[in-house]
Design a protein around this nucleic acid. Structure first.
Length: 577
RNA sequence: GUCCCCGUAGCUCAGACGGAUAGAGCGACCGCCUCCUAAGCGGUAGGCCACAGGUUCGACUCCUGUCGGGGACACCA
């Protein structure tokens, strides 16, 4: 349960009974977290935003509102502060109900059906199938995967998707590169010309092809071997890619660009846009600034993307009459829409940022406004070792593959590090730092809190043998015994989890989960350490079972939320450290 | 030339829908282990939120402009 929404609804209901507010609109009323914990558990701005229309001073209106909302169940105290804030303090009856919900629902606590089961397509990675994934792809993979998980939490019916760009010139280059490796497998000495892929991951492809087909292509014409070599190499590349994704726990539905083209989806999508009057033949202005030397004005088939927010209209056909990449992409999104996805999320690398406007324009146009495409961009990732930037050069084939990184730091750390930064900000990863076993390594620090909680439960079983310390046994707890500032801070944070999930999901900001977990772990560690100075604050008090159980209930709720957070991030927790 | 992103503490970064004294981690300095994991915790110092206007009762947040950093800009994918 999102307690902000819960109490807002309760407050609005009470406001509707106040005579002075009969004509007021309540949309601007917000229930939120006060900036300072001293101000209470919740803050409401109702008096300030409604005062003007009601013809009252904010603080006078606040007095009236206070008397009406003070009796809402769960609210222990209402204070008026500053320009007219209503600061609410929640009572132990409310906290107990929250702890009970968390214990009962486990990792489902915070899930909701706000999206009402709407179908959502999340497309990510979609790396060209011409080589192994590298570090930049990992970022998109994590962001997309976590967006998918978050979206499911708030009630979307999510399909995870990978778009295989297997129809363009790059797959012919792949085929030619693989063919050279095939000849190499027969002992020939090869030189890889500029423009082909030099990476040695193709050696195995050449060998595999030799094994499968023998020498039948050695003397064949390119026109004959190319399709076969291409299909074989493509399949091998997809195997590589899927293997890396599997290590990260990612599985997706694969859609082939070539298959869409073969099914004439492009023609259908362009016809649909033509029928809407959005296609025309015309000549584009030359690009301003540096004008390419070989630029020449030519008439092309253009899409009126500028009618839908793009800067200029975009070409759909190349000069040789074949479709542009954009045309295929229009077809792909048209296909998504026909499969029932009015709502789509794409995760792009920052180098494709300039492509977003035209793609969104095409979705708006072809769905006649009913479709919605959100595009998340992932900024650059730089890798550091011992403070030195690890150079990556795609041209020489000398780049860090995702497999290399996974081998060294693992999926957990990689996922977490990626999620500690907003996706559209540049990200630096320092090997030494992320592998450190200390609070400098955030995933470690959170897992440490979780492991400590497990440790307390092990101790508790020794101290109170026979006591039921499972969810059922902790359910009816004297939560009012928890009165320390540190304990209340943790309870308040636990209650913020549903809100965190919703914000992260609906604003497409998966990093919020990571920041929330760091805060929660930090609050827990503070609670733990309070017991160092003051023995009565230790969780387990062998002379006071009731208090110990109350504290254990809070701890179990905390570990449930940590597990929920890890679950959403795709991080696998360690039980003991 | 156009478009997109960014500019917050010494460093790396959070600050949803505009709200109260702008936060965290690292680094610096000072404390805390006979005790559930000190792999930790507490405290102190450190900010004209790039700049200038505008909207508002109220702007780090919204709008316009300027400066600075990054990225992308016909037919490639």
């Amino acid at each position: 349960m999102n307690h902000f929404r819960h109490f807002r609804a309760q407050i609005l209901e009470r406001l509707s009974h106040i005579d002075a507010l009969q004509d007021s609109a309540f949309e601007r009323v917000v229930v939120e977290l006060p900036r300072d914990a001293k101000h209470g558990d919740l803050a409401c701005n109702a008096a300030m935003v409604l005062a003007k229309a009601a013809g009252l001073k904010p603080r006078d209106l606040a007095e009236t509102i206070k008397t009406h909302i003070a009796t809402i169940p769960g609210i222990a105290a209402v204070e008026i502060a500053g320009p007219g804030f209503l600061n609410l303090r929640l009572g132990s009856d409310f906290w107990l109900s929250q702890i009970q919900r968390i214990l009962e629902q486990g990792t489902d606590f915070g899930s909701s059906d706000l999206a009402g089961g709407e179908k959502l397509n999340v497309e990510y990675v979609s790396a060209n199938p011409t080589g192994p994934l590298h570090l930049a792809h990992a970022r998109g993979a994590v962001i997309g995967d976590v967006m998918a998980r978050l979206s499911e939490k708030v009630g979307y019916d999510v399909t995870r998707e990978y778009y295989i760009n297997d129809a363009g010139g790059q797959v012919d280059i792949l085929a030619r590169s693989a063919y050279l490796r095939y000849r190499e497998a027969f002992g020939e000495t090869i030189t890889i010309p500029e423009g082909l892929y030099p990476g040695d991951y193709l050696v195995a492809v050449g060998q595999g092809l030799k094994q499968r087909d023998g020498d039948k292509w050695l003397t064949a014409d390119e026109a004959d071997w190319l399709p076969a070599v291409r299909d074989y190499a493509l399949a091998r590349m997809l195997e590589l890619i899927k293997a890396d994704l599997k290590v990260m726990g990612i599985e997706q539905h694969f859609t082939s660009e070539a298959a869409l083209v073969a099914a004439n989806k492009v023609g259908q999508a362009i016809d649909a846009l033509s029928a809407l009057g959005l296609m025309y033949r015309g000549v584009l202005e030359p690009p301003k600034g540096q004008k390419p030397e070989d630029w020449e004005p030519r008439e092309q088939l253009l899409f009126r993307s500028s009618d839908f927010g793009d800067d200029v209209d975009r070409p759909i056909q190349k000069s040789d009459g074949s479709w542009t990449y954009f045309a295929n992409d229009i077809a792909y999104h048209y296909d998504k829409y026909q499969r029932g996805f009015a709502k789509m999320i794409n995760v792009f690398g920052v180098d494709h940022a300039g492509y977003i406007k035209r793609l969104r324009a095409s979705v708006k146009a072809m769905t006649e406004g009913t479709g919605d495409l959100t595009v998340l961009t992932c900024n650059l990732v730089k890798l550091y070792r011992d403070g030195e930037l690890v150079k990556m050069s795609k041209r020489s084939g000398n780049f860090i593959t995702l497999g290399d990184v996974l081998e060294e730091i693992g999926s957990n750390v990689l996922r977490f590090v990626i999620l500690t930064r907003r996706s559209d900000m540049p990200l630096d990863i320092d090997y030494a730092r992320v592998l450190e076993a200390s609070k400098d390594n955030p995933v470690w620090a959170i897992n440490y809190a979780y492991a400590r909680i497990n440790s307390v439960f092990r101790k508790a079983e020794e101290m109170f043998p026979g006591q039921d310390l499972g969810a059922a046994g902790l359910m009816n707890t004297a939560i009012e015994r928890l009165t320390s500032e540190e304990e209340l801070a943790v309870m308040n944070l636990l209650s913020q989890w549903p809100q965190t999930l919703e914000t992260a999901a609906f604003n497409a900001e998966p990093h919020r989960v990571a920041f929330y977990l760091q805060e929660l772990a930090s609050a827990f560690n503070a609670l733990w350490s309070a017991g160092h100075g003051d023995v009565t604050l230790r969780f387990l008090q062998d002379s006071d079972l009731e208090l110990s159980v109350a504290r254990l209930a809070l701890l179990r709720a905390t570990s449930n939320i940590i597990l929920s957070g890890f679950d959403v991030m795709g991080v696998v927790p360690q039980e003991v450290m």
